[in-house]
């Protein structure tokens, strides 16, 4: 059934991605591909894997953006010019447009935890759901001819054969910078909800009306470089004390 679930539990599982922390290492991309090519549904195929035109199916991709404030082309000139590494995967939207357009019932949103999944045995590979998603979270697997998307590692998070520490999405488990967090975003006392509240977590493209579950934490404001550098690095040594005052005096005398 591709209508959105009418009966929903109080649970909304999803990710919180910290744009302040992500270093753009692509480890989550690799671990996602590694886990999901052998996990839920068809393998994530590559086309021309060892050739010059290699491409393949990924459920998670990292973009890097330059953010340039007005009049602040150079970092520190004005505002907060910076590079932001930007991981992007399915946002498991509350009003998922990819679900309702599906003609076969392959694409669905689970009432019990809000995860958006594709039943690959029903998917005809028409690609309309990928057109309906404004985020580019769905990619057709060209070998299997079915639509692939992030499953929130549904085959990990409920998997009691794994150790408890591993029962999180592969990307979250692998992130070396701890930029990715997983939890119940409907529960205000969950770690992810607290993070979102404290850091002002945001929705991507709210104007598309999709009501994404995943949230992004914006980069923290920068400290100007001068604020971190101590007085001793400066030209002026007034106020120096102890060993440095002695050194300052000796060096002046030489």
């Amino acid at each position: 059934m591709t209508s959105l679930p009418t009966e929903r539990s109080a649970k909304k599982l999803g990710l919180v991605i910290d744009l302040d922390v992500c270093v753009g290492c692509h480890a989550c991309v690799v671990s996602c591909k590694e886990w999901n090519t052998g996990g839920y549904g068809a393998a994530l195929s590559d086309q021309d894997p060892y050739g010059p035109n290699v491409s393949g199916t990924f459920l998670n991709r990292i973009h890097s953006f330059e953010v340039v404030p007005e009049g602040g082309e150079v970092i520190g000139e004005a505002g907060e010019a910076r590079i932001v590494h930007f991981p992007k995967s399915c946002l498991h939207c509350d009003d998922a447009p990819c679900v309702t357009v599906c003609p076969t019932g392959a694409s669905y949103k689970r009432g019990e935890d809000g995860i958006v999944l594709v039943d690959e045995d029903k998917c005809i590979g028409c690609g309309l759901c990928a057109w309906a998603c404004p985020y580019g979270a769905r990619e057709m697997d060209l070998a299997a001819g079915v639509m692939k998307k992030c499953t929130l590692c549904v085959d990990r998070i409920y998997n009691e054969t794994l150790q408890e520490v591993d029962r999180v999405p592969s990307c979250v488990r692998t992130c070396p910078a701890n930029a990715r967090h997983y939890g119940d975003l409907a529960d205000p006392s969950s770690a992810v909800s607290i993070m979102v509240a404290e850091r002002g977590g945001i929705d991507l493209m709210p104007e598309q009306g999709t009501r994404p579950v995943n949230k992004y934490l914006p980069p923290r404001p920068r400290k100007p470089l001068a604020a971190s550098a101590g007085a001793l690095l400066a030209e002026n040594t007034t106020g120096a004390s102890g060993f440095f005052a002695w050194l300052d005096g000796m060096l002046d005398r030489i």
Binding site: L19, V29, N53, V54, S55, G56, T57, F58, R61, I62, H63, S64, F65, E66, V67, V68, P69, E70, G72, G79, E80, A81, R82, I83, V84, F86, K88, A130, Y135, G136, E139, M140, L142, I202, D203, L204, M205, P206, E207, Y216, P218, P219
Partner: peptide, 24 residues
């Protein structure tokens, strides 16, 4: 709006996720 970074400034793509074309 796509990145939510508009409050900092103008957003410009620096690097694509991969060197080659993809399905999208």
């Amino acid at each position: 709006t796509a990145t939510g970074l508009g409050s900092i400034g103008k957003v410009r793509l620096f690097e694509r996720p991969h060197m080659n074309e993809n399905y999208l």
